[in-house]
C-alpha cells in the first residue's frame, strides 16, 4: 500500500531517513508513526500550542502544520536529537540540564517543544533578555509552570553554557 506514495528523504537528528507517505501527511505524524520519534507531541493540531515544535533547516516550526512533502531534503531536529549521545548516565544538552535543575519541566508534555523553541532562541540570541525569552517561547503553551521556572531554565542555560559550548550541543553531566 505504501508503494503508492513517494519516497521522502530527510535528515532527522543527523541521520538520513527515507519514508513513503502521502505527501499531505503531517510531518508530526511521520515523526511519531513512521520514525517512532514520539518525543514530539501533539497538543492542538492547529499550530497554537507548540508541543510539536521541531527545528527544520535551522528554523523553529510546528510539525503539525507541515505536509511532509515540504520537508523533502530538509534537516530536522527533534528533542531526541538535542543530546544525541544520550545513554543512562550519559549526556544532556545544557538546556536539559537547566530545565532539570530549575524545575522547567512539570508534567513534561510541553517540554520537548519548549526545549526546541529554547534551543532556537539560544542560537539566534545567545544571551537573551527576559523579553526575548518571553517572545521566543510565546508559541509554546505550558499549563503547569506559569513559565517562571522555564524562563529561569533558559537564562541558566544561556549563562552557564558559553555559546561555543552550546554549539557542541552537549556536555558531560
Amino acid at each position: 500500500m505504501s508503494a503508492r506514495w513517494p519516497t521522502i528523504r530527510m535528515i532527522v537528528n543527523g541521520e538520513q531517513r527515507g519514508i513513503q507517505a502521502p505527501p499531505m501527511k503531517r510531518l508530526l505524524d511521520v515523526l511519531r508513526q513512521d520514525l517512532h520519534l514520539t518525543g514530539t507531541k501533539e497538543g492542538c493540531g492547529e499550530g497554537e500550542c507548540g508541543s510539536c515544535s521541531v527545528r527544520m533547516n535551522g528554523e523553529l516550526v510546528n510539525s503539525c502544520l507541515i505536509p511532509v512533502l515540504q520537508a523533502q531534503g530538509a534537516e530536522i531536529q527533534t528533542v531526541e536529537g538535542l543530546a544525541p549521545k544520550l545513554e543512562p548516565g550519559g549526556t544532556l544538552h545544557p538546556l536539559q540540564e537547566a530545565f532539570l535543575a530549575c524545575g522547567g519541566a512539570q508534567c513534561g508534555i510541553c517540554t520537548p517543544g519548549m526545549l526546541m523553541a529554547a534551543a532556537q532562541l539560544l542560537e539566534t540570541h545567545p544571551r537573551p533578555t527576559l523579553a526575548e525569552i518571553r517572545e521566543g517561547l510565546a508559541g509554546n503553551l505550558c499549563r503547569c509552570t506559569g513559565f517562571m521556572r522555564i524562563f529561569e531554565s533558559v537564562l541558566a542555560a544561556s549563562t552557564q553554557a558559553s555559546q561555543p559550548a552550546l554549539r557542541q550541543a552537549h556536555h558531560a553531566r
Binding site: 499531505m24 503531517r26 493540531g45 492547529e46 499550530g47 503539525c64 502544520l65 507541515i66 505536509p67 512533502l69 515540504q70
Partner: peptide, 27 residues
C-alpha cells in the same frame, strides 16, 4: 496553492480542507 501551510494545514487537521489537489509554493 499551499505555501507555509499555517492556514490550510489547520483546516486539514480539522477535516475542513476542501482542496483535493494542492500545489506547493514552499521552496
Amino acid at each position: 496553492p499551499i505555501a507555509g501551510g499555517t492556514e490550510l494545514m489547520v483546516a486539514h487537521a480539522a477535516g475542513r480542507l476542501n482542496a483535493p489537489k494542492l500545489v506547493s509554493l514552499w521552496g
